[in-house]
Design a protein around this nucleic acid. Sequence first.
DNA 1: GAGTTTGAAACT
DNA 2: CAGTTTCAAACTC
Length: 757
Amino acid sequence: MDDPGSPLARRLSSAAVPPHEGSPIFDFINSLSPIVTPKPLDSAKNIQLFKSSELIPVSSIFTSPQVNPQQESEPGIRDGYIKLSQEVVSLNCQRNQIGISSCIESAGSATLASENCSPPEDATVLPAGPQSISLGSETLGDAKKQDTDGKTDNTADVEQLKLSRACSDQNGLDQFDSSTSGRNIQDNELAKQYNDDIAACSLNRLITHCHANNCVMSKLDLPLGVQQPSWTLSGDVISSKSFMAMDQANSEDLRRELFDGPTGNIQSAASDAHVYCAGTEEFVGTNRDREMLPGVVQSQFSNDYFFDTFKVSSDDMVLSQHQCGTHKHSLFNEKAGASNMSMQSISNLHHASICGDNSVNTVRPSACALPGIGLHLNAVASNSSNMPLTINHPLPPEHTSPATVISGSETALCGNEAYTRIPDDYSSQKILSIADVSDQKTHKKRRRTLQNDDGSCRRCSCKKSKCLKLYCACFAAKVYCSKSCSCQGCLNNHTHEETVSCIRKRTESRNPLAFAPTVTRACGSFSFGDDSNNTPASARHKKGCNCRKSSCLKKYCECFQSGVGCSISCRCESCKNSFGKREGMLLLTTEKLDKWGKAKTTRANEEKLVFDKQHPVSQCDDLDLPSTGNLLATPLLESCRTSVLFPSTCSKLPPSRAGCSSGLHNPQSPSEADVLVSALDTCAAEMIHGNGLSDIQETGSSCATSVNVVSPNKKRVSPLCIVKTALSPISRSGRKLVLNSIPSFPSLTGDADSEPH
DNA sequence: GAGTTTGAAACT
DNA sequence: CAGTTTCAAACTC
C-alpha cells in the first residue's frame, strides 16, 4: 500500500475533504491540465504493457450460482439499477463535496426507472455501504419468477421514448436514422439486460494490472479501447450474472494512485460491483463526449469531472466513484462510438483508433454474418478487463448489418485472456426488442421470436437430465432455469439450490473445465495490426470443437456458433469455419509434414541433442525456462507456427506422423508443455490467422505477455527476448523446433490454468 | 412439429 | 483412456 507519507497518500488524504482556496490541494486542482483525449492507438499500445501474471485465475470467476440471463432482464432485476435514478444521483451529487465533482447518472436511468413501473420511492438512496442495492443472485432469482412478457411491452414504450429523446437530444449523433435507432435501442436494451459485474471488474483489473506493472496511466489516459471492453462486457454481464473475483486491494491501490488527484473523494469500498451505471449507458458520456450526449443528459453534468465522483452501489458492493464514472465513460464510448455503428463518423473513428487499424471500415464481413453471438452463452466469466469483446449478434438477415454489431472494442485490449460467454439470450432479447419497438407484436409472437427466430436461444428444454447436467445449457452456464425454459423435471432452480450447487461441484470436480467458457479471447489478440479483420477468429477456445460432419459450418460447432474461428484447440475435421478456419495447419507445408512424419523418434532426439549442443545457451539470457523443456530455445516463427500448430495437427495425424507425440517426448512434465503450448498459442495462433511476420514485433509484447502468464515457475520471460528470439536468424535457420513434450492436444486449461500444478 | 443429425457429455 | 451411450440442440422436412 501507499506509504502514508508519500505524496500520493498525502494527496489522497487531502482529497477527502473539500479543498479550500489557497490550500495545496486547491492549487493542485487548479494546476491540473485540461482533460486530453488520449490517442487510442498509443494507449492501446500501452495496454500491451500490461502483464498478465497477476491475473485472476479463471476458477475464481465461477463462483456463485447464477441466474438465467433471461431473468435478469426482468423488471425486478432491472430495478436494481433503475434505482439509480435521478433522485439518487442528485443525492449523490449533493454528497460530493469537492467542487469538481459531479454525478453522471443520466436520464437513461430515469427512463429505465420508469420502465416496469418501478415506483420512484423504491429508488433507495444509495448508501455508502455495500448493502445498498441488493442484486445478488437470490434477488435475481426471485425476479425471474416474474413473467417476462409483461415487461416487454413497457420496455417497448420506454425504448421508444428513449429513442425519441435520444434522437432529439443528440447533437453529434445526427445520423440516427430509424433503422439504426432500432438497433441502437436493441443494443441499449441488451446492455441493460446484462449484468455488468465483469465490466466493473474489467477496469479494475486493467487498472490493477497496470498498477502491478507500474504503468503510469491516468484515468484519462485510459484509452477508449481500454474502457470500451468494460462496457462491452457490461452488456454481457448483465445477462450472465457472473461474478468475478477482484483483486480489490490492488485495484483500490491503483485507484488511489490514479484517481486521487483532484477529486479525491475516494470510497474505499469494494472495488468490484455490479455497476448499474449500465442502465444509463446510452446517455452516459464523459466530459469530452458530452457534446454527443442527449441534451437531457448533458444537463445532468454539472461539471467536467463528473465521472470522477459518481458513486453508485449495487449488489453487495459499492463501486467507487471513479470506477463507475470511468465505466460510464467507457460505456458511453461504447454506446456512442461503437454500438451506434450507424454513426459511422463516430464508430469508424473510434474503431480505427482503437484498433490501430488504418482502415476505417469497422465492420468485418464476418461480423455481419455471424450466426451467433461472438461469445458464448455461459456465464461471462471474464477477465474482461482487457478483453475486446465483439458482440456479434445473430440477427436475422434483415437485421444483419454493421450497425448491429457491437464492436466497440473489437480490437482494443487484452492484457490477458478473457473468458467470455455471452448468453444467447442476449441476442434473443435483442430480437425481442426489435419486435417490441418496431411492431408491438403480440406476446405470443414475441415469445416465438424469442425462441426461434434467432436460433440462438439457449433456454433449455431438457427432459431427462433434470437440468443438472452439462447437457443443460442453463446448468452449463451456471444459471438457473427460468420460466422460459421448457425443461421437464427441472431441478436447476432455487428450490433445489443446494442440489444444484452440489451437482455443480461434482461436475466441476470431474471436469474442472466443465463450466469454463467455450470461447475465450487470447491474450494479445488486440495487438495484431490486422486483427480487426478477424477478431472473431482471434478468439480462442478453451476446449475447442471436435466437429466432424458439420465442417464447423453449422451451429453444432461451438466455434461457429460463437462466431469465432476455430483455433488450435479444436480437433475438428475438414474445418471450414467461415470465421477462421483452423487453417493454420495448412501452414505446415507438405514438406514439413513429411519431414515430421518421417522423422523417427531416435533421429528426432538426436537432432535435438545436436541442436542443444549447437545452442547450448538460450538466446535469451533471461529466458528462464526449464532446461528440459528448452522449448523456446528456438522459438523461430516457423517453428512457432509449426510446433504450436502441431498439436492440432497431431490429433489428426497418425501417431507416426504426429511428431509431437511420436517419441519426441522427453521427461519434461506435461504441465510444462501445456504451459508452453498455451504460451505460444496466442502468438502462433495469431500468426496462423493471417498475421505475418511483420506483425510479430508489434505483437511481441502481447505474446510475451502470454508467455509471462504461463511461464513455468512463474518466472517472467522477457517479451523482447521472445520476440527477438523468434526473429533471430538462427531461429530462422529452419532447424526443427523440438517441442519435446507438447501433447498431442494443446493445453485446454488456458492461461489462467496454465500454472504448473 | 416431428424426425433426423450432430457433437458434447456421461458412462463403461 | 478409448469406445459407447445418452442427451439435447441444431437442423431438415
